[in-house]
Design a protein around this nucleic acid. Sequence first.
DNA 1: CGAGGCCTTGACGCTACTCAAGGCGCGTGG
DNA 2: CCACGCGCCTTGAGTAGCGTCAAGGCCTCG
Lengths: 248, 248
Amino acid sequence: MAEMIAQISCASCPLRKLPAFSRVTEGEIEFIEKFKMGELHGKAGGAIYLEGAASPHLFTLLSGWAFRYKTLPDGRRQILNYLFPGDFIGVQTTLEVAMDHGIEALTDVRLCVFSRGRLNELFAERPGLALDITWLAAREERILDDNLLAVGRRKSSERIAYLLWHLADRAAESGLLNKDGSLDLPMTQQHLADTLGLSLVTFNKTLQRLRRGKFFSFENRRLEILDEDAMMKAAAVYRPSQPTRPLI
Amino acid sequence: MAEMIAQISCASCPLRKLPAFSRVTEGEIEFIEKFKMGELHGKAGGAIYLEGAASPHLFTLLSGWAFRYKTLPDGRRQILNYLFPGDFIGVQTTLEVAMDHGIEALTDVRLCVFSRGRLNELFAERPGLALDITWLAAREERILDDNLLAVGRRKSSERIAYLLWHLADRAAESGLLNKDGSLDLPMTQQHLADTLGLSLVTFNKTLQRLRRGKFFSFENRRLEILDEDAMMKAAAVYRPSQPTRPLI
DNA sequence: CGAGGCCTTGACGCTACTCAAGGCGCGTGG
DNA sequence: CCACGCGCCTTGAGTAGCGTCAAGGCCTCG
């Protein structure tokens, strides 16, 4: 599915428009340019990483949607998280270790390819960028924490409300919302069920039940959150109250 | 619960005995020494981080067991992962953001305290250590991936077998096994159930069922894996076969 | 000796799963 | 142009797994 294409300048990278990337300096751009190996285009449904294969590459998602997943021997699949433009792909694994999860494109994607072997160069020469990478990894870990809480301890209706709210939130960050605030999701209900540890049937039936609440709409893969408070309540989310007491 | 005590030399740090830390250079030790703010002793059951509180500190666990967790408003708790000696605590959060998970000590613990604000100094001056931190974060993410797969897609007996196997594995890495290969776990069945997204009762009943298989023993919190293959089979774990095909 | 923490077991009910079938929309080919 | 197949969504029926409630036992500690 993969097709390598010619170098494109980082200075004109679409990601630079995102607020999260605005403070990257000119010197850093210049360095990234050297670090970049090329650009990769993938088709919807194609594999970016295969489970169990080793890959010498790191990627940044330039455009499109993808997801990370793991499977059990008998085929049961768990989607770990969704990847949005600007997300870094592949820090999870080290040089020697084989990928223990797969990555698949949900839409056509454009990827920026980096050399994994030169990562220590980046750390040595551009500590600012290194810190950014670590920060991205930490953010991904927080998302995983949230997902684990949802799958482990929320009931089906809460899980669904949580996931839809979460996706809308991340999409907003990445500037993927439509003008009217709605969001077109590329994944099927099977994907969403596999994210939440639910069966497709349970996902669908619970979704029907949630739809009757009217605080969001989700038809033909178009999601719109109509009442955020109601949504958060349905998701059993709370904004933690102010710090109880600082330690040491 | 926290009690700050006097500086202790990093050169004699107990972690240096672990294979993972053997290659730290003298220069790096010297730097760590400056970066270190002190040592903290905590009692079993005490909070290291509180959910929702901001903390300006980073820690390394020197000895003892702890766990990270999140809770829902109504008290349902999900344990995210367990912390072993050598694990880094607190990279998950950035400077400004409040902790969105809590950390609690399972046994008495000794922590090495670092200044979070000086993290960029570390990245600037010691890229090798920075890479180590990122590597630790990536490893933690892999563990979370595995947990998410277990909680989302394994059934209760598989989850329990998986968790016991995983704990034995990590304990072995950290040199916590008894001479006879058994392992004394500090957590209650309630902790384990909260790790796996199960109720205490289901955990216990399923454990009884698993015990009849005789491929491990787990009595009075002492765990011993008697037949690793049977254990992995019960856990629905597989060593992934060789890479299908390399991409690009 | 009593209290409390933890483990264990039984009874019962609900949630989520599997199996099964049908509908809708879209693309393809006769 | 319409029939057909396919992917995806939807719904019903029956079941199994897991959760809750409840109670009792064991051990430790005060």
